[in-house]
Amino acid sequence: MKNYAIGGVEVVSQILANKFYDEGHKVTFVAFEKPPELLTNELNKGIVIHVLDLPLYSESNVLKLKDIIIENNIDIIINQWGLPFEPTLLAFNAKKGTSVKYISVQHNVPNNNDRLVKVKTSIANSRGFNKYLLKIKKKAIQFITAKSMHYVYFRSDAYILLSQSFIPIFKKFINLKHCNKLEVITNPITIDDKNFNYSESEKRREVIYVGRLDHNQKRVSRIIESWGLIESNNPDWKLTLIGDGPEKSNIISQIKDLNLRNVTIEGFQNPKEYYKRSSILLLTSEYEGFPLVIAECMHFGVVPIVYGSYPAVYDIIRSEFDGIIVSPDENGFNSKLMAENLEKVMKHQNLLQEMAKNAIHTSKRFSVDKIYNLWLNLFERVINQK
C-alpha cells in the first residue's frame, strides 16, 4: 500500500488482514511509511509489517520485496493502490520466477481523483488563456491517469472495483473492450458491534458528519451552509463534526459568520459512540469511491442523508427507504434542497425510525464475514486460473 497512515484504505486493509489471519491465512503487510501506533495497535500481533524505502520503485526495493515473497511463501499480492503504475512495476519485477498472483484494488471512482477535481475547480474559476491552459492540463492528467490504470489492469490477475456502477466508467476511461479481469467487491464495515441493539430512546436529536475537514473532496462547508438554513427552526437538534483537516479554520469562521450555536467540532475520534447515540449522518462530498461511513452508520441505525454526486452511493442507499440521496440539480449541489430533506427527516420521528430500522437491515450486506467470503472465492479462482 501507499503508506500506513490513518485513512479509509488503511483501515479496510487492517480489518480484512485481521479477518484473513483469524481464518488461518498468513498475512504480511508491505508499506512505504512507518505505521502509526493508532492503527498497528488494532492489527493482529501475528501480522508482520515491512517498510520499504522511497522512491517507490528501485532495484533495492525489488530485491527486498522478492525476499519478503520468498521468505513468507506468498501466494497472492493485494495491491491496495490500484492507480499509479510504480507499485505494480515493483511487484511485477519482484515476483518474477514465482507463481505469485497479483490483485489490484481501485478505491475510488475510476475517472475522478484529487488532482482532477482540483484542476476542474480551477477551470470553473478561471477565464481566458489561463482557462485554456488548465483545460490542457486536465486532459493531460486524464490521459496519464488512464494509461497508469491501463498498465496496472493488464499486469494484474484480477482488478477490483468497489461498485458495479464503476465497470462502464472504468471501461470507457481506459478504453477497455474486454473486462474479464474486473471484479466487484465492496469495502466491509470497519466499525462493528454485534451486541448493538437499536433503541429509539437512546438516540439523540443529533446530526453527525464523520471524516476529513477538507474542501476538495468532502466539501464540509456545504454541510454548514445547509445546517444554517434550518438550525433556528430546530433548536433541540445539534450538528457534530467528527474529524479534522486543512479546512477546519475556514469551517470555524463559517460557523461564526452564520452565528450558528448548535455546531461542535470534535476532532478525530473513534466514531462508534457517536454512531450509537446520533440519528442522522450528513455527507456532501464532491466525489467518493465507496464511503465506509455510510454503511457503518447504517449498522447503528443512523439514517444517511447524502449528496448523490458519485455512482456508488446509489448501490448503498435506497432513497426514501433506508436513507435519502439528494441528487445534483442543473447547478450541482443545492443547499436549500439538502436542508429541506434533512429537516423532513428531523421533524418526522416515525419516518426517521422506519428508515433507521431499514438501514440496519441494509448494512448487513457489508459485514466483514460476507466481504471475506467474496475475497476467499476470488483467491480460489485466481490461484486456479492458468
Results as ranks from 00 to 15, higher is better:
52 L>F: 06
383 I>E: 10
299 H>M: 12
99 S>W: 01
164 Q>A: 02
158 A>D: 02
139 K>H: 13
28 T>R: 01
100 V>H: 04
332 G>I: 06
77 I>E: 05
308 G>Q: 07
119 V>M: 03
145 T>V: 05
180 N>W: 03
271 P>Y: 00
41 N>P: 04
155 R>Q: 08
202 E>T: 09
161 L>Y: 03
182 L>V: 11
350 N>M: 03
130 N>V: 11
78 I>D: 03
379 F>T: 03
322 D>S: 07
297 C>M: 05
50 H>S: 06
323 G>D: 06
112 N>S: 06
287 Y>L: 06
158 A>C: 04
233 N>R: 08
206 E>Q: 14
70 I>R: 09
56 L>D: 13
351 L>V: 11
70 I>V: 15
222 R>C: 00
137 K>L: 06
227 W>P: 07
294 I>Y: 01
113 N>S: 14
263 V>A: 05
350 N>D: 13
201 S>N: 14
154 F>T: 11
320 E>V: 04
203 K>I: 00
209 Y>W: 08
358 N>C: 08
232 S>W: 01
13 S>C: 12
302 V>D: 00
107 H>M: 10
28 T>S: 07
84 P>V: 02
217 Q>Y: 00
116 L>W: 04
293 V>I: 12
71 E>N: 15
99 S>G: 07
280 I>L: 10
245 G>K: 07
80 Q>A: 10
203 K>G: 00
176 L>F: 09
137 K>A: 12
320 E>W: 02
273 E>P: 00
257 D>L: 12
80 Q>T: 12
138 K>E: 13
179 C>L: 02
361 H>R: 10
186 T>V: 05
288 E>G: 01
328 P>G: 03
124 A>D: 15
93 N>T: 07
233 N>E: 15
66 K>T: 13
39 L>Q: 13
339 A>H: 11
269 Q>E: 13
324 I>E: 07
311 P>Q: 09
9 V>D: 13
60 S>R: 12
253 S>H: 05
218 K>M: 05
